[in-house]
């Protein structure tokens, strides 16, 4: 995408890989998924895993509060100036897909104010199975579901499950208690996603977010190449 004909002045348009000053902008990764599946917990764990090796920041899209941003602040996963909350007007999917302007400003302001940044994580407000990020906002997206939300979610599919660059099935530690069949979830996810990767994780025990962090590092390597 290359709509900014001028290459000077502020605000490159959308997915332009370079900032107005010609430097490469940060890689942007979106995290979406249903309410309560563990998006914020995954963001927090990623920040802890990556903050010593990367310059990173987070944008949250809370539906009606600053709760997700405040959780990250309370957990002190990053300094407060590296966490921005975007207000979404009761429609979190609109802010990440149909009208991404507020989120684009948030990521650009973060790069201006605390940059240079290697990575910006954009967390969607909890939404439904059809919510996906615009390619104008993020370079890759992670869809987070959990075993307690029903082991039929991978079979049901939907744009998030089917097309996300990484599918994370969270809270595997709960599977025995909620009667979820992890092997079935894995087989259904494989059927929906073919070669696209799937990670099963529990943040309650080792190795926690390790696999997702490794995937993020791989995307960063490809982005910087």
């Amino acid at each position: 995408m290359h709509l900014d004909h001028t290459h000077h002045g502020p605000a490159a348009v959308s997915a332009d890989a370079h900032r107005p000053d010609g430097t490469r902008r940060a890689l942007r990764i979106g995290l979406g998924g249903p309410v309560g599946s563990g998006k914020t917990a995954t963001v927090a764990a990623l920040c802890r895993a990556l903050r010593d090796e990367l310059s990173l920041a987070v944008v949250t899209n809370d539906i009606y509060t600053r709760e997700d941003a405040e959780f990250l602040l309370r957990e002190a996963v990053l300094p407060p100036e590296r966490i921005t909350a975007v207000e979404t007007g009761a429609c979190p999917h609109t802010a990440i897909r149909d009208d991404i302007s507020a989120n684009l400003e948030a990521v650009e302001d973060l790069e201006d104010e605390v940059g240079p940044l290697d990575l910006i994580l954009v967390e969607s407000g909890g939404d439904n199975l059809t919510a996906t990020f615009s390619k104008g906002l993020v370079d890759a997206q992670i869809f987070v579901i959990d075993v307690a939300g029903g082991d039929d979610i991978p079979r049901k599919g939907g744009p998030g499950v089917t097309t996300a660059d990484l599918l994370v099935v969270n809270k595997t530690d709960l599977a025995p208690y909620v009667g979820s069949d992890l092997a079935r979830m894995a087989a259904d996810a494989k059927a929906q996603r073919a070669e696209l990767p799937v990670v099963f994780q529990s943040l309650r025990a080792e190795p926690g977010v390790t696999d997702v962090a490794a995937w993020v590092r791989g995307r960063l390597t490809a982005w910087a190449a």
Partner: peptide, 28 residues
């Protein structure tokens, strides 16, 4: 002002113009 900035982005992508560029430069 926030809405003006957001509209600016959409407008510049839709109807590129020197006047919009100048206004964006003056009010980042």
């Amino acid at each position: 002002r926030r809405l003006g900035r957001q509209l600016m982005r959409a407008a510049r992508a839709s109807w590129p113009s020197a006047e919009l560029d100048a206004l964006a430069g003056e009010f980042p």
